[in-house]
């Protein structure tokens, strides 16, 4: 597993040009780093709030150091971090569910003191499932949610990573939200 910024930067470049092997080496590195950071924050005070974007950016800095990288490499890494964040939250929700099931309860909603007010009422497993369904209709609509919500990227950062205009990003975001809101309420 690569442990220095140079190696990580090389993997990013290689995976961006479609090297599957580089991507499969890079993903666990980003994932582990994010999980470690998330774990640290969660162990601290319960009322502490932290935007996902701070976690993602901290992971990014720790992985690459202060090294100047091409913006496309940066965008690629943010995309991987957003995917990792989604996976981490879904895994935690699933683990929690399994624990509750063991106790004979059927709690579907994830209630987790470490999550912010906005995220507490979200059923991450249902959201993940709805996102998979959305990806089958239009992968870009789902990708945008991953970046914006799980990666905590701003509209501007999202449009940079996806290579679309900010106006398009805004329109697609409205559609994804309406679609997911309907799926999760219904």
């Amino acid at each position: 597993m690569p442990d220095n910024p140079q190696a990580v930067a090389r993997l990013i470049r290689e995976s961006r040009s479609g090297d599957e092997n580089a991507l499969s080496q890079l993903f666990p590195v980003v994932y582990q780093e994010l999980r470690r950071l998330a774990g640290n924050y969660m162990r601290r005070e319960a009322h502490r709030t932290l935007p996902a974007t701070a976690l993602v950016h901290e992971a990014y800095l720790r992985l690459l150091g202060e090294k100047q990288v091409h913006w496309k490499d940066r965008a690629h890494l943010l995309g991987i971090a957003a995917r990792s964040m989604r996976q981490i939250l879904v895994e935690r929700a699933r683990a929690r569910m399994a624990k509750k099931r063991g106790g004979g309860q059927h709690a579907v909603t994830l209630i987790d003191e470490t999550l912010g007010q906005n995220a507490r009422s979200i059923d991450f497993m249902a959201l993940d499932q709805a996102l998979r369904a959305l990806a089958e209709l239009d992968p870009k609509q789902a990708r945008l949610v991953e970046l914006r919500f799980f990666g905590g990227l701003t509209l501007a950062e999202t449009s940079e990573v996806m290579g679309i205009s900010p106006a398009t990003t805004k329109r697609w975001w409205a559609l994804s939200r309406a679609w997911l809101r309907r799926e999760l309420n219904g």
Binding site: A38, Y41, T49, L50, P51, A52, L55, M85, L89, T114, L115, G116, Q117, N118, A119, I122, V145, R148, F149, F150, G152, R177, L180, R181
Partner: peptide
């Protein structure tokens, strides 16, 4: 109002 899925995760 853009409240759904907006705001901080943590």
């Amino acid at each position: 109002e853009a409240t759904f899925l907006e705001g901080n995760l943590f």
